[in-house]
Design a protein around this nucleic acid. Structure first.
Length: 231
DNA sequence: TGCCAGGCCGGGT
DNA sequence: ACCCGGCATGGC
């Protein structure tokens, strides 16, 4: 299975090239993006991030003092913008009130000496999951892409694609699918980083528009796609 | 035109 | 443990 997963990864990487994820200049921008991108196309998130940058609000302390209604206006392009505003505010509050507004400080306690991270990691993950609007994908994205923690990020594309490849059940929980990857892949930050980025690249290409699925780098995926008349 | 994006919450069974 | 409606913009 490990060979198969790495083979798929190699095909994707060769086809799409390195994705250079996460597309953010700072860990804080990354975290903000992770919240804003929930169930919305990234191009919409970019608009909101630009709005925040223009207002100098990609700063925990500045955002902390920002008026809610004005923030909602800036986040409108991200669809469910009122909920997104609250989610961002609550994540930001967590950082400001617990880590002096220094996002990187969150990870100080989970820093590992070699490839082993200590028991503080699940503690931090649980704390993040308790924050309003922080679900497993958002939290794991933050841990991997902002914190450099080797944890595999699962999303809707992962579920669809690996089901179509015949490797996982159609109905599978986030936790189980994550375990599937982490059980069969080496715990390597760079691999987890790039693999998820590649899955999204493939998902963006084939998961919405079946007729365009012509030169899918994972051939089995394409054939399965057509046979099942998915979507 | 209509369809649907890189989820998550809360209330139901 | 699942299931499902609600959230509510903008691009193709």
């Amino acid at each position: 299975m490990q060979t198969q997963l790495l083979n798929i990864y190699d095909k994707l990487l060769k086809h799409f090239g390195p994705r250079h994820w996460w597309p953010a200049e700072t860990p804080y921008e990354m975290m903000v993006g992770a919240v804003l991108t929930q169930a919305v196309a990234w191009r919409n998130v970019e608009k909101a991030l630009t709005n925040l940058k223009n207002q100098g609000l990609l700063d925990p302390d500045r955002l902390y003092r920002m008026d809610t209604e004005k923030l909602e206006e800036l986040l409108k392009p991200t669809r469910y913008y009122k909920m997104k505003t609250r989610k961002l505010q609550e994540l930001n509050r967590f950082i400001v009130e617990n880590y002096q507004g220094i996002p990187e400080a969150m990870f100080n306690t989970v820093v590992f000496n070699t490839s082993v991270f200590n028991e503080e990691l699940p503690v931090l993950r649980a704390k993040l999951l308790k924050i309003y609007g922080m679900g497993p994908e958002t939290v794991d994205s933050i841990l991997l892409y902002a914190g450099g923690v080797p944890i595999f990020v699962v999303d809707a594309y992962t579920k669809k694609i690996f089901y179509r490849l015949g490797l996982t059940p159609e109905q599978i929980t986030y936790t189980k699918l994550q375990k599937f990857f982490m059980d069969h892949l080496p715990g390597n930050i760079r691999l987890y980083n790039e693999y998820h980025a590649q899955i999204v690249a493939l998902g963006n290409k084939i998961c919405q528009n079946v007729p365009k699925c012509i030169q899918c780098p994972v051939s089995d995926c394409c054939s399965y796609f057509k046979e099942t008349n998915f979507n």
